[in-house]
């Protein structure tokens, strides 16, 4: 009796086991019991293995999620901040040098000390800001300050030397020329039949010589003629940028080699027929030696003589460093505002 009950019980709590339904020897207890035990084991083991597989799958998907998360993080702001810091140092040094140019320094020592102090003050401010805001150490330290001379005529007049010479050399074998601008007034400028008789700006770099003829047109404008290519001003007063080669938005090739790069130095700068035109000019030349500038043609620093020369900084080299959590960077930045593009810097 009890045997029959035992065999019946699983039938009543049928687990929809297919094998169970196939059973037609219901009363054969002895054979039935071990069969069910075996089947249950098989399914149990299968279930456990599938469960483990599912856990493994979940772990894998979690890993994939982590990878996607890492993918969205990028490199962090470190490298960009380092690049920004170097670019800032470049701009700051350029501004300091432009500011320096406005001050007519009588001695080179004053010019150098002021530029160095200014850059050090900016460096200290940047260092404090970067450290407090981003926990990074940002440094900029003047590494080399190159002496220069500003040659200016800031009142309209003929392009003659201080002694009145019309054909004269401003600088001889100078290391560089930057920020060379000129205004030419058509009213005081001649318009000769032959361009070579006009006021001429002559730059010699290496073995190449470039000459630009500047003269007035019949309609009261100014024309710059370089090897046949001409640019005409919009009004009677023209602003010429000799380092960039532009006149009122018109560009002309000047002092470049065949591939458009700036001529390699040293450079000579000369004016020919200086009494054929009137205007102002400003340029900074790099002093490689003390006699680069033809000082006898200029008024001394601090005098009212025109044209006049005074001391300034030609270029500055900064040692720039940036050390953050993921980036470590040190480089050098050289600033010489208004220098022709593609100049190969003569240290």
């Amino acid at each position: 009796m009890s045997r029959t009950d035992r065999s019946d019980r699983p039938d009543s709590t049928d687990r929809s086991d297919r094998a169970e339904r196939l059973e037609w020897t219901g009363r054969s207890d002895r054979a039935d019991r071990p069969t069910r035990t075996d089947r249950a084991q098989l399914i149990l083991v299968g279930g456990v293995v599938v469960a483990f597989a599912l856990v493994a799958l979940v772990l894998l998907l979690n890993t994939a999620l982590f990878a996607e998360n890492v993918a969205t993080r990028g490199l962090g702001p470190g490298p960009d901040r380092a690049a920004d810091h170097a670019a800032f140092a470049d701009r700051a040094a350029g501004r300091v040098l432009r500011q320096e140019e406005r001050v007519e320094y009588v001695s080179w020592a004053d010019a150098e000390a002021n530029a160095t102090d200014g850059l050090r003050r900016i460096g200290a401010a940047v260092r404090t800001r970067e450290f407090s805001e981003h926990g990074a150490v940002a440094t900029m330290e003047p590494d080399a300050v190159r002496p220069g001379a500003a040659l200016v005529q800031n009142d309209t007049g003929g392009f003659r030397s201080a002694g009145g010479t019309a054909n004269w050399t401003l600088a001889d074998s100078t290391g560089g020329i930057r920020n060379y601008t000129m205004t030419v007034d058509a009213d005081g400028t001649s318009s000769p039949a032959n361009a070579t008789d006009a006021f001429t700006v002559r730059i010699e770099g290496g073995s190449e010589v470039w000459e630009a003829y500047v003269y007035a047109s019949g309609s009261g404008t100014v024309i710059v003629n370089v090897t046949g290519e001409t640019c005409e001003s919009d009004s009677s007063v023209a602003t010429v940028d000799w380092t960039r080669g532009t006149l009122d938005g018109c560009t002309f090739p000047f002092a470049t080699d065949g591939s458009g790069r700036a001529l390699s130095g040293p450079y000579d700068v000369a004016y020919l027929n200086g009494d054929e035109a009137e205007g102002t000019y400003h340029l900074v030349v790099r002093n490689r030696t003390t006699d680069d500038v033809e000082t006898q043609h200029f008024g001394d620093p601090g005098t009212a003589t025109l044209p006049r020369r005074y001391h300034t900084v030609y270029a500055v080299r900064l040692a720039v460093g940036y050390e953050g959590s993921s980036v470590d960077y040190d480089t050098h930045v050289r600033a010489a505002p208004g220098e022709p593009e593609n100049t190969s810097p003569a240290s």
């Binding site: 490298p79 170097a86 993921s326 980036v327 960077y329 480089t331 050098h332 930045v333």
Partner: peptide
């Protein structure tokens, strides 16, 4: 970063 100057040192 290093392209700015040949003498640079940079580590990311």
């Amino acid at each position: 970063l290093a392209g700015r100057d040949a003498g640079s040192n940079a580590t990311v």
